[in-house]
Computed example of a mutant assay.
Amino acid sequence: MLAEIKEATAYIQQFAKEAPGVGIILGSGLGNLAGDITHTVEISYHDIPHFPPATVEGHSGKLILGRLGGRPVVAMAGRFHYYEGLSMQQVTFPVRVMKALGIHTLLISNAAGGMNKNFRVGDLMVITDHINLQPEHPLRGRNIAELGPRFPDMSEPYAKPLIAKARAIAGAKGISLHSGVYVGVQGPTFETRAEYRYMHAIGGDAVGMSTVPEVIVAIHSGLRVFAMSVITDIGIREEDNVITHEEVLAAAKAAEPHLTYIFSELVQQL
């Protein structure tokens, strides 16, 4: 893996005008933040050594280098998922590469199903913790000491100072923010009603098919992490809870301006 990381990093560095300090992963329907990045260089995933292609609608599949809020950043417009048939090492490979490029902080967004009765479609939820129900672990196998410790501490994966900054940014703009626990599942099916009830009962406020593997690898790599979900459907309703990917994308797009504002301001304050 070290050789693959170095090869991908070296390729990207040919196009980088400066080393990025912040990495950003944009989830389903949340790619417009890329439009706020200036002095951009865009690289297709197809061209980066060892990057798998993005195959999911709503994920454009390109790495963007530039500046956001005056800070050098690298952004993934589209992420990878375990349900696409990839290994967890492939899913999280871009996090390893962003770390090698020089980032110290990782910001993550996703679209998620709400399981908290106080949530509504279009709400924003700051992730304060997660429950990992994915069937594979990204750190399974021989540990590479150069990448991180064998047993990383996951007691506080989401940085409290970044959460406090985001709350202050949202409050000053009049944007309402929820906080909650994100449950990471494999997908690609949306959950059954019984599964929603189960995940809510064990402490989950929102559920999605991403984020958790990337956060685990980010913590393993020594990065600070901030993550936010856009609530794109309410899964705990017992009636009329048929969910389509098109509806998820539409709800994410409607909520995106507020998420984009918070991310941009947060990067500026780092």
Rank of each mutant, 00 (worst) to 15 (best):
S28R: 08
I12C: 14
E18K: 10
A227Q: 06
F119C: 03
A251Q: 11
A100S: 13
G235I: 03
G171Y: 04
A172E: 13
G203S: 03
A112G: 10
M1L: 11
P135Q: 00
G171V: 01
G61W: 09
S229D: 08
I5C: 02
R71V: 14
N116L: 06
E195N: 07
N110Q: 09
E146F: 01
I5M: 03
I169M: 06
T55A: 14
R67V: 12
L33S: 09
Y83A: 02
L266W: 05
Y182W: 01
V181A: 04
P188T: 14
M154K: 01
R142V: 13
R237Q: 13
I12E: 12
V185A: 06
D153W: 01
K160N: 10
L162C: 11
M154Q: 05
R142M: 05
E239K: 13
A206I: 08
I37N: 12
G187L: 02
T38H: 12
I5Y: 02
Q186H: 08
A252K: 06
I231G: 09
I262V: 15
A3G: 08
I127K: 09
G23S: 09
P213I: 04
Q268W: 00
E84P: 11
L30Y: 13
V95F: 04
F15W: 13
V41R: 15
M98C: 01
I219P: 00
F226R: 04
V230N: 13
A218G: 09
S176I: 05
A172Q: 14
Y82E: 00
Y198L: 08
G69F: 06
L65M: 07
P94D: 07
E214K: 03
G113N: 06
L133C: 11
V22C: 08
I43T: 13
R79E: 04
R224I: 00
F80L: 14
V74C: 13
S87W: 02
R120F: 08
I24M: 04
F151W: 11
H104Y: 02
K253R: 15
V97N: 11
D47Y: 08
I234E: 05
